[in-house]
Design a protein around this nucleic acid. Structure first.
Lengths: 208, 208
DNA sequence: AGCAGCATCAGCCAAAAGGCGGAGAGACCA
DNA sequence: TGGTCTCTCCGCCTTTTGGCTGATGCTGCT
């Protein structure tokens, strides 16, 4: 059985280095390259076409992980893509899975989880950390609490600190419509004020 | 010259592993132990008294990095403590330095920076990443923008999404006083609404 | 003693936000 | 075709927030 070729994508050298060290303990893994950005990752995938891409979502500069995943999928490359990130924010999980990630691991995962996830990914299995899975299931159980695209857009701008008027101008809708959307957002987030909505959004939805 | 003994403290195994691998390339470093939490770190320091403690601030469960630093200092241990973390939030920097950290590195630092910082730390030199240093200097240059303790307390509660009335009740002051404090906070943060203040606070001041 | 900074409070007023009910247009699906 | 979602908009009313000015007591520094 030939080794599983792996590309590591993370903007932190320490993390790449650690991951490489961990994977190096397993005979069936072969880390063929590392990338520090989305752009770099795209190039290396084309060049080396590794079996698995292990990717962080938050990339310091340039293209972020989600966008990189999306572009990889568009070039219908056959790599299995594994997300390996620090936070389990709802928004990130959904967007990553949506973009075409095969699995979603958290950085506090134990080595065995990582190994299992990578081996599973090449076989087309979807593996994710327990907290991630439970978040996904919760969304499936309570579809009422899932924001519509427009609402998500509003919420995102809301976290910039914009007023209703500014939101309207930015989105080319009336202030009345903004208020309607906000009311729906508050209901779904379970809050009563914009302040609480912003706090919830930034903390829970990972809008930083 | 005898090797510099190092204790690594980070709740992520991958990071510890990476740091260990990096430090292992230098003949004068000796990673004598790793800890995944503040509590663990305290015990290992007592037991091994390493020359340098490299510590992350965000620890998943239990005691966080700041508290660990504070307790190490109280036991007047003579270790040099280096903060090694992902974010350069104003609040974290100030609190870490205040607690007794010798240096402050960001996780995207290149290996050389890390090596230099550790070697400097044992000699009593204070080394920090460029972005961190510039933030500290900015605070020194503009003391007008530094929040008073009471204001910081308000801002912290503000990020929970409380209303003025609730803030007053929580702090046993009148709503009028709350408004006064808020006006000062807005001025210092350079914002005009509570929404923007919350967004700024959570993102910039690291109130997560 | 005097001054500056901090925390506390007040009143007034304009602007913003939030709650309520209602409603039309388009998309999509059974 | 009918039902459901989503996005859009309205008016009316109450509450909340923010801007402004001014004031008091305390602390610490000079």
């Amino acid at each position: 059985m030939t080794a599983i070729t792996v590309l590591l994508v993370d903007d932190h050298l320490v993390v790449r280095s650690g991951l490489k060290a961990l994977l190096g303990t397993q005979p069936d893994f072969d880390v063929v390259a590392e990338a520090a950005s989305g752009e770099e990752a795209l190039g290396l995938v084309e060049q080396l076409s590794p079996a698995v891409v292990v990717m962080d979502l938050a990339m310091g500069a340039g293209m972020d992980g989600i966008e990189a995943i999306r572009q990889l999928r568009q070039r219908n490359s056959r790599q299995a893509i594994l997300v390996f990130t620090t936070y389990d924010s709802d928004a990130d999980i959904v967007r990553a899975v949506d973009a075409g990630a095969m699995g979603y691991l958290l950085k506090d995962a134990v080595p065995d989880e990582i190994f299992t996830a990578i081996r599973g990914a090449v076989q087309g299995k979807s593996v994710m950390s327990a907290p991630v899975a439970s978040r996904l299931f919760q969304q499936l159980r309570n579809p009422d609490e899932v924001l519509t695209p427009r609402e998500a857009e509003l919420l995102s701008l809301l976290t910039e600190g914009l007023s209703n008027r500014e939101l309207g101008q930015r989105l080319f809708i009336s202030e009345a419509t903004v208020k309607t959307h906000l009311a729906h957002i508050y209901a779904k987030l379970g809050v009563e004020t914009r302040a609480a909505a912003i706090a919830t959004a930034i903390r829970r939805e990972g809008m930083r």
